[in-house]
């Protein structure tokens, strides 16, 4: 796989992940990715490249960091993301998924209905 093909695959996986129920964000998968985004923002280019990190080779190594909502168990969403990546890679692959943030905002509706009398 060429670097261009890897970048294309990374972009496709990122898009698919964001469409997966329970996934609220895809974060830069590495410190280098975070730094690259910061530099792109400073330069105003906004072209930091995909957040999914892919290292070409056999097997392909794919690394993602996710933000999830709490509507579904984090483990279930992470495993669904893993299956999605396996399908997209369609070949030998080693996947590393890190849940980096659980978004509490979806719970706010239920918070409002919760009360406790003295």
């Amino acid at each position: 796989m060429t670097e261009d093909e890897a970048a294309e695959l990374a972009a496709r996986i990122e898009q698919d992940l964001l469409a997966e129920p329970g996934v609220s964000a895809v974060y830069p998968a590495s410190g280098a990715g975070l730094l690259r985004e910061a530099a792109a923002n400073l330069l105003g280019s906004g072209e930091a490249g995909p957040r999914v990190a892919i290292r070409t080779g056999d097997p392909l190594q794919i690394d993602v960091a996710l933000g999830l909502d709490q509507a579904r168990p984090a483990g279930d969403t992470a495993r669904a993301a893993q299956r999605l990546i396996r399908r997209a890679a369609s070949g030998p692959v080693q996947i590393r998924i890190t849940v980096a943030h659980l978004d509490a905002s979806l719970n706010r509706g239920s918070i409002a209905s919760t009360r406790m009398d003295p």
Binding site: P59, Q70, A74, G75, A78, R79, Q82, Q94, I95, R96, I97, T98, V99, A100, H101, L102, A104, N107, R108, S110, I111, T114, M116
Partner: peptide, 28 residues
């Protein structure tokens, strides 16, 4: 996090779990 494929590695950060614990305060 548990995963069937031994080569894959799924996990959640301690920071995310601490954030989850903090969010429990919302319900009280």
């Amino acid at each position: 996090l548990s995963v069937a494929e031994p080569d894959d590695d799924l996990g959640i950060t301690e920071g995310a779990v601490r954030g989850l614990i903090r969010s429990a305060g919302d319900a009280v």
